[in-house]
Amino acid sequence: MARVLLFGPLRDVAGWRERETTAETISALRTLLSREDAALGAALSAPGVQVALNQALVRGDAALDARSEVAFLPPMSGG
């Protein structure tokens, strides 16, 4: 069971901040989330949304295990 985290506007789109998933890869997780919530699926694939796996940015797909933490990070803005 990997942990999924949403940040910023993605949280408002989804209506949740954190949940568990049984998906075994990041792409399977995207498919699963899109199937449940098309608006969230679209928001996760929007330009500028990055993915961190275990607090490191990843591009493309990666395998998940029980200890994985996947975070979807929309465009960032500090200062």
């Binding site: 940040f7 910023g8 506007p9 408002d12 990070l73 929309p74 465009p75 960032m76 803005s77 500090g78 200062g79």
Partner: peptide
């Protein structure tokens, strides 16, 4: 920090709230 650091900024005002992008 303005456009690449992992922060998300929401502005709350009389007309509601909105997320601010760089």
């Amino acid at each position: 920090l303005k456009s690449r650091a992992p922060f998300w900024k929401k502005e709350h005002g009389p007309d509601g709230a909105r997320w601010i992008e760089p």
